[in-house]
Design a protein around this nucleic acid. Structure first.
Lengths: 102, 102
DNA sequence: CTCCAGTATATTATTATATATATATTGTGA
DNA sequence: TCACAATATATATATAATAATATACTGGAG
């Protein structure tokens, strides 16, 4: 065989990371991650909604997807909910995009 | 606002790259890319099928998706079809996976 | 021309994702 | 307690992705 199988990333790893990559295959989720990555402090839903140029329900839905997968975490303060990144591994994808844009 | 909008990756870019990222959010497509990336020469469908630990129809289907998006290219030689990568930008994702695995 | 290996496509069922809109929940301040 | 702002969820619908299987196409050997 032309390629040695043991040099490849094993299928278990690929099956594990594929859904994580899929998490980042949506423009609003990418934008949310980019915002949180650029902020020194957690960002509330209102601000996220504005910066996403979208509507609140859509943003909340996408936040839930990210929360369910443990990518972001939420903290309530009064009637605001502040989000931040809890798993930085997905940020590598953002770096890819920035790198590739140049 | 906590984050300056102009520092963010613009939405047009995110909308453009999201579908490309989605291309890589499937274990078999990741495996195909990893194989082609590790091979010095184009690889035919039979070999890809074996290395993907899958069946021929599934691999051909995934190859078509990658071909349609210009990520891989095919060259026929007799009754074999040899594939290679035609757009290296997706390989950044593979690097992310390898980097993150460590 | 026929057969076969190699490859591609079609079909179908199932499941997942996306989008829009409406409604529910939660906490605060009057 | 009531109203409101902030956030979350529900629902409906449309669209897309996946998987499995069967079938079709293509080129070479005989």
């Amino acid at each position: 065989m032309i390629v040695e199988a043991q040099k490849l990333i094993d299928m278990e790893t690929l099956e594990r990371v594929a859904p994580i990559i899929r998490l980042t295959s949506h423009p609003i989720r990418l934008r949310i991650l980019d915002i949180l990555n650029n902020s020194q402090v957690p960002v509330n839903v209102n601000n996220l909604t504005e910066l996403c140029e979208s509507c609140q329900a859509v943003v909340s839905q996408q936040l839930r997807i990210l929360r369910d997968q443990g990518v972001v975490t939420a903290r309530r303060d009064g009637n605001h909910v502040y989000y931040s990144i809890s798993n930085t591994s997905v940020l590598l994808i953002l770096d890819c995009i920035k790198k590739h844009r140049e």
